[in-house]
Amino acid sequence: NLYFQGLKYMVPGARVTRGLDWKWRDQDGSPQGEGTVTGELHNGWIDVTWDAGGSNSYRMGAEGKFDLKLAP
């Protein structure tokens, strides 16, 4: 699974964008943008601060869902 392989790169400072299971509307800005991981992966959740200004926790394994992917 590509998403599980990418988890080791989901570290503080990593750049991310919305992924396969995104369901959080425009939390990442409008139009959709990139963000920066600000915390360690914990119980399948990870913290992100978006360039647009907001921050929140997103699923990276929790509930079998992956809200994020590494930015290109």
Rank of each mutant, 00 (worst) to 15 (best):
N1R: 08
N1Q: 12
L2F: 11
F4N: 12
F4T: 11
Q5T: 12
Q5G: 10
Q5A: 13
Q5P: 15
Q5H: 14
Q5C: 15
G6A: 15
L7V: 11
L7E: 08
K8Y: 09
M10F: 15
M10T: 03
V11M: 09
V11E: 08
V11A: 09
P12N: 09
A14Q: 09
V16S: 00
V16C: 03
G19M: 06
L20T: 13
W22M: 05
W22S: 04
W22E: 04
K23Q: 12
K23Y: 06
W24A: 06
W24H: 06
W24M: 05
W24C: 07
R25T: 12
R25D: 15
R25M: 15
D26S: 09
Q27M: 06
Q27G: 07
D28I: 05
G29E: 06
G29W: 05
S30I: 14
P31T: 08
Q32R: 12
Q32V: 08
G33Q: 08
E34S: 13
E34I: 14
G35W: 02
G35L: 02
G35N: 02
T36E: 06
T36S: 08
V37H: 02
V37N: 01
V37G: 00
T38D: 07
T38W: 05
T38C: 13
G39H: 08
G39S: 14
E40S: 12
E40G: 11
L41I: 12
L41P: 08
H42K: 13
H42I: 13
N43S: 09
N43L: 10
N43Y: 10
G44P: 01
W45P: 00
W45G: 00
I46Q: 01
I46E: 00
I46C: 05
I46K: 01
I46D: 00
I46T: 02
I46H: 02
D47Y: 13
D47A: 14
V48F: 01
V48I: 06
V48R: 00
V48K: 00
T49V: 12
W50R: 00
W50S: 00
D51V: 04
G53S: 03
G53P: 00
G54N: 10
G54V: 10
S55M: 13
S55Y: 11
S55D: 07
N56C: 14
S57M: 12
Y58I: 02
Y58V: 04
M60V: 08
M60W: 08
M60F: 09
A62D: 04
A62P: 01
E63A: 09
E63P: 00
G64Y: 07
K65Y: 07
K65G: 05
F66R: 03
F66N: 02
D67K: 02
D67R: 01
L68T: 00
K69Y: 13
L70F: 15
A71G: 07
A71Q: 09
P72V: 13
